[in-house]
């Protein structure tokens, strides 16, 4: 049995969060550069140039890409042949929380979390807690995907329990409509993560994970790949454009993931991520 120390998990969490906060993926950057070549109007070009310049400054100065450094979401897969041994902070979950706090203090992140959502809404002051989604898998490694999430775009996300009869068109219409209603609030150009199928909560989870797929990658199932292309074309025909200034680039990608679902249902979840699409993955 392989031993994984809680402190290693803490350090991995801290490192991945800061990497995500300071450095944009090369895939997103390439897509933005391609968009700049396409756009002709001055406001759209200005927005894209500022976004690219901001990314350069952030990684050079190791400063967050956006002031909304987000709520920390961690997807963790723990191999069943590994055992987590506690350290000073505690075990598995405590280590992730401590890693998120260490990133908060060390990276000068913003305290963006309130404790009670409805009544006091008092700021927790250290951006805690992180949201943890953990699974037990084969092997003896621990794999972690962190996705700090800002709420300009999170707030524009939606889920609908569509009937099976809604079919392909119903799903596509809901996706496009969600992006249309979001307008310029989620800081376009966005990445649209879509979950189709599963149960209510599973659908939302796969939508969220789909946002982290590499921009430019093609869905392995040609039917879904075609649906992604169609939705992206429709979304970009909305004319919202970079920063909402008008243009051809409202989204850089539509990523769909799907899961088996109930005979009576076809849930569709749409999770929107801004151009500051922050995620980082690593393992122990």
């Amino acid at each position: 049995m392989r031993i994984i120390r809680a402190n290693e998990i803490l350090e991995l969490t801290r490192r991945l969060i800061l990497d995500a906060e300071f450095n944009i993926g090369v895939d997103v950057r390439a897509a933005l550069e391609a968009a700049l070549k396409r756009e002709t109007a001055q406001p759209a070009r200005l927005a894209l140039e500022q976004i690219l310049e901001n990314q350069r400054i952030a990684s050079e100065e190791r400063t967050p890409l956006c002031q909304d450094t987000g709520m920390i979401v961690a997807f963790v897969e723990l191999g069943q042949d590994a055992r987590v041994e506690s350290d000073a902070e505690g075990g598995f979950e405590e280590a992730i929380q401590a890693g998120a706090r260490a990133a908060f203090y060390g990276g000068y992140l913003r305290a963006s979390v309130v404790d009670d959502p409805l009544f006091e809404r008092a700021n927790t002051r250290d951006n805690s807690p992180a949201v943890i989604h953990a699974r037990i898998v084969g092997g003896d490694r621990l794999r972690m995907l962190v996705m700090p999430k800002g709420f300009g775009s999170e707030n524009m996300s939606a889920i609908r329990m569509l009937p099976p009869s809604a079919g392909r068109e119903g799903a596509a219409d809901f996706i496009v409509d969600t992006v249309r209603r979001a307008g310029s609030k989620p800081c376009p150009p966005t990445i649209v993560g879509v979950g189709i199928g599963g149960t209510f909560e599973q659908c939302a989870l796969i939508a969220k994970k789909a946002t982290a797929r590499r921009v430019g990658s093609v869905h392995p199932d040609p039917r879904y790949a075609a649906l992604e292309d169609e939705c992206l074309a429709r979304v970009n025909a909305l004319g919202i454009g970079p920063a909402g200034y008008g243009g051809f680039t409202t989204s850089l990608a539509v990523h769909i993931d799907h899961a088996p679902t109930h005979i009576a249902g076809m849930p569709v979840a749409v999770n929107i991520v801004c151009h500051a699409s922050r995620h980082a993955e690593g393992y122990i």
């Binding site: 976004i51 901001n54 956006c66 002031q67 700021n123 800081c187 801004c274």
Partner: peptide, 28 residues
């Protein structure tokens, strides 16, 4: 309108910053 998410770039345009009220709200 300014470009959402261009936060590090916009910070460079800030030459002075002082809290004038509601310090207890932190970032707010």
């Amino acid at each position: 309108g300014v470009v959402g998410g261009a936060a590090a770039l916009i910070a460079r345009c800030v030459k002075r910053c002082e809290i004038v009220a509601y310090e207890d709200l932190g970032t707010e």
